[in-house]
Design a protein around this nucleic acid. Structure first.
Length: 659
DNA sequence: CTAGGGTTAG
């Protein structure tokens, strides 16, 4: 590292200014420029020599202006950092999301020990353990555990909870649990009254860490059990559990818990909002999302770049691209993730031009695009068929920005080339890329084979896919669709038979609708809802009115091997239809219905919903796993979509379900 | 100077 740390020949200038004035001066810094100016003046007056001043500046750099390099530079220039300074830089490095910085924290810690002029104190270890935890460095973690015992800090409750955290994050759940049990205070015992506030808080933290660890290991059930068992909860306990659900795909549970939190009179804070918004976005619960936005405003919760990114994503995934843009434009600060969110939003809504415009604006704003921004821009190009633009963005990413393309980027390129008909080039890209291809990328190529009716390549790709993911329904469905698009029904039957033999079933379809702020979830053929009877009646009415209006069930995409009547029945009970039926009986006339589906909407539902929008005079907005469909006056916004055009041309033959 | 957070191809 930097040798000036170890230079013993300089002396300390102790012209310390009172700390209050110092932090006031720091918080008055609004831009990195202000900070650098203040720093310059500290250097001029020699005040930077004061460890307290330096530590404050380091902290401010790292946490308020998030400039780790600058923080490190200040630390490295200190002739004789005291323990407080060491602790500060260690904490700064440990709390980043960057594994390099966390490793650096460990190296710095060992430098601190070697240097020997400053002994680690009880504030040093939590940071160092955090670095081990975040970087999953069990070996170092154990060594540090030894040191802690040697220094006699193992009784310290902050340190013991950090130890639990380290073990839990390094996936040594048994050690974590035994330490946890040793340290956790039994609230059922008579000692409860004697516990002081600090001890109680420490106890809650210990539980929170344990829950967080279970969540990170993907053991949501154990996490929830602990959450239910814990004697006291803080707002963090709720946040950990909510984000745990959200990050493991249990969106409904996350939202339910968020609502339960409010019934328990715990006020959501900034982190709560950031944690619950992704779940709201994925479910498409616009009303709840708007409420969150309002709540932040009312409760003076600052909408910064982080919360702003979550809001932009939520509005876009809930169908309000305009609102997403509006939030984006009013943000005081935008980082690479914020830009990725808006670019991804435009991509999802098929607005390639806006995506490109914003990609250029990002560069003008002095932000370096991250890998996710490139995923957004490449998928926008792909949807719009902008092959040359896509290629140029890809090479820009590699050659100019120096980002290593991930499988997602190759996936976008395969999709881009494949859609445009450059099938050979797409396949070559897969075979030549330095990453092992996954099922997703082969599926993209298979989709393109289907689109361009390349049976030869399609069969070859499907074969590879079935080897790669033999129990994934997707490849069978895609191959079957390819045969169907060529009218080869015999081959379709063969694929379906094989699926049956291998007991492979299509993923269950699932739809959500938000009514008066409550989210209702429906599976296909679902009759578990409390208003199941009314819904059934409505479905009956819908099916009758549809038939009176000339609709005939399109049973080609029903994947069951059953007779025609069965198939028609199954279609009637697709989850999106159930959600629409429920929406129709639960809302006032003319009220638009917004539905989110986990899979792609099937052609039969697509056709039915067009008619339903006409018959019931409702706007119906369906977000399927890929895009938005706005049904109104008997037509859908995606009408001009290429695949639908194909379906129109091959209406009689095509088996449409794209799943 | 313990704990929690945002974007991700088809």
């Amino acid at each position: 590292m930097n040798s000036t740390i170890y230079n013993p020949n300089r002396t300390l200038n102790s012209s310390a200014q009172p700390r209050l004035i110092l932090s006031k001066a720091l918080t008055s810094c609004k831009t990195p420029r202000d900070l650098k100016q203040l720093h310059a003046s500290f250097i001029k007056t020699g005040q930077i020599q004061d460890p307290l001043t330096a530590a404050e500046v380091i902290k401010f750099c790292a946490f308020s202006s998030r400039d780790i390099d600058y923080a490190r530079a200040i630390f490295c220039q200190m002739p004789e950092p005291n323990c407080f300074c060491w602790n500060t830089i260690l904490r700064v490095l440990a709390e980043t999301n960057d594994e390099h910085h966390q490793s650096e924290a460990l190296m710095l810690f060992s430098a601190m020990l070697c240097d020997g002029r400053v002994k680690p104190n009880r504030f040093t270890f939590p940071s160092v353990l955090k670095a081990c935890a975040r970087a999953s460095r069990l070996r170092e973690g154990k060594q540090i555990h030894g040191l802690i015992v040697k220094f006699g800090f193992h009784e310290d409750e902050f340190i013991s909870s950090s130890l639990v955290r380290m073990y839990v994050m390094c996936a040594v759940i048994e050690d974590a649990y035994s330490l946890f049990s040793k340290n956790v205070v039994d609230f059922d015992g008579s000692c409860q009254m004697e516990l002081d506030k600090r001890k109680q808080d420490g106890n809650v933290v210990l539980w929170n860490i344990m829950i967080d660890g279970q969540v990170r290991l993907g053991d949501i059930k154990s996490a929830k059990n602990l959450f239910d068992e814990m004697p006291q909860r803080s707002v963090v306990s709720w946040n950990v559990m909510i984000s745990g659900y959200a990050q493991n795909g249990h969106f409904i549970e996350a939202i339910n818990l968020f609502q339960e939190m409010q019934s328990s009179n715990i006020d959501p804070n900034y982190v709560t909002l950031v944690s619950v918004l992704p779940a709201i976005a994925r479910i498409g619960a616009l009303e709840l999302g708007k409420w969150i936005h309002l709540y932040a405003g009312k409760n003076k919760i600052e909408i910064d770049d982080v919360l702003g990114s979550a809001l932009v994503d939520m509005y876009s995934k809930c169908g309000s691209i305009e609102k997403a843009l509006q939030v984006f434009e009013t943000l005081p600060k935008r980082n690479a993730i914020t830009w990725s969110a808006i670019i991804g939003a435009f991509a999802m809504h098929g607005r390639a031009e806006d995506a490109i415009i914003h990609f250029h604006l990002l560069g003008k704003a002095g932000v370096t695009p991250n890998d996710v921004a490139y995923i957004g821009i490449l998928s926008a190009c792909s949807h719009a068929g902008l092959v040359e633009e896509g290629r140029s963005f890809f090479s820009h990413m590699v050659k100019v920005v120096g980002l290593q393309p991930k499988i997602e980027h190759y996936g976008c390129m395969v999709d881009l080339l494949g859609r445009a008909g450059h099938l050979e080039e797409a396949e070559e890209l897969i075979r030549n890329m330095p990453i092992e291809p996954d099922d997703v990328i082969w599926k993209a190529l298979l989709g393109a084979c289907k689109m361009h009716k390349n049976l030869k390549m399609g069969e070859r790709v499907a074969e590879t896919l079935m080897e790669l993911a033999p129990h994934d329904s997707g490849s069978y469905v895609a191959l079957s669709n390819l045969y169907a698009s060529l009218g080869n029904w015999e081959a379709v039957a063969r694929v379906r038979l094989k699926m049956k033999e291998m007991d492979i079933r299509k993923d269950p379809g699932c739809s959500w609708i938000e009514i008066h702020g409550i989210i209702h979830e429906f599976l296909a053929e679902d009759d578990s809802h409390s208003q199941a009877k009314e819904i059934q009646a409505m479905l009956g009415e819908m099916s009758m009115k549809l038939r009176l209006n000339g609709y005939r069930p399109n049973t080609l995409d029903v994947f069951l091997n059953t007779d025609e009547q069965e198939k028609a029945r199954a279609l009637q009970y697709h989850s999106e239809k159930i959600a629409v039926a429920f929406g129709l009986i639960s809302t006032a006339p003319k009220h638009p219905l917004k539905i989110v589906k986990n899979l792609r909407i099937c052609e039969d539902c697509h056709a039915s919903l067009k008619l339903i929008s006409l018959i019931y005079k409702r706007q119906i907005i369906v977000r399927d796993r890929k895009r938005f469909h706005h049904f109104e006056h008997g037509s859908c916004s995606c009408n001009e979509d290429a695949s639908t055009m194909l379906n129109k041309i091959y209406r009689k033959k095509i088996c449409v379900a794209d799943f």
